Amino acid sequence: MRLTSPAFADGEPIPDRYGYDFENVNPPLAVEEVPADATSLALVVDDPDARESAGKVWDHWVVWNVDPATGDIEAGETPDGAVVGQNSYGAAAYGGPKPPDREHTYRFRLYALDTELALDRGSTKAELQAAMADHVVAETELTGTFAPR
Rank of each mutant, 00 (worst) to 15 (best):
G96E: 01
W58R: 05
D16G: 11
T140E: 03
N24Q: 11
L43M: 15
V57Q: 06
Q129R: 13
E23Q: 10
T78G: 08
D49G: 06
P15Y: 14
P100R: 04
G19P: 04
G144D: 12
S40P: 06
T140A: 08
D67F: 07
D16C: 06
A126I: 08
D134G: 08
L142N: 07
N24C: 07
N87Y: 05
M1V: 15
T105Y: 08
D72Y: 05
N65S: 11
A133W: 02
D120P: 09
I73N: 02
H104Q: 01
M132W: 00
R109L: 03
Y111N: 01
G76L: 10
G55H: 13
V44Y: 09
V45Q: 05
A91E: 02
G122F: 12
N87Q: 03
A133Q: 14
D59E: 10
P6C: 02
V31Q: 06
L119K: 06
D49I: 11
A131W: 00
A9R: 10
I73F: 00
E77V: 08
R149D: 09
F146D: 02
S88G: 07
V62S: 01
G19V: 04
V34H: 04
D46E: 13
W61T: 09
A147M: 00
P35H: 14
M132L: 07
M1H: 03
G95T: 05
A138I: 14
S123R: 03
P28F: 13
L43P: 15
D72F: 06
E103A: 09
V45A: 11
P6Y: 02
G95Y: 00
P15K: 00
D16T: 09
K56A: 11
A92E: 07
E77L: 10
D120T: 09
D134H: 07
D120N: 12
E139N: 09
L43V: 14
P28A: 12
A42L: 14
T143R: 00
A69C: 04
D47K: 07
E12D: 13
G144N: 13
S5A: 15
A50H: 02
W64K: 10
L110V: 13
A75F: 01
W61Y: 11
P27A: 08
A147I: 00
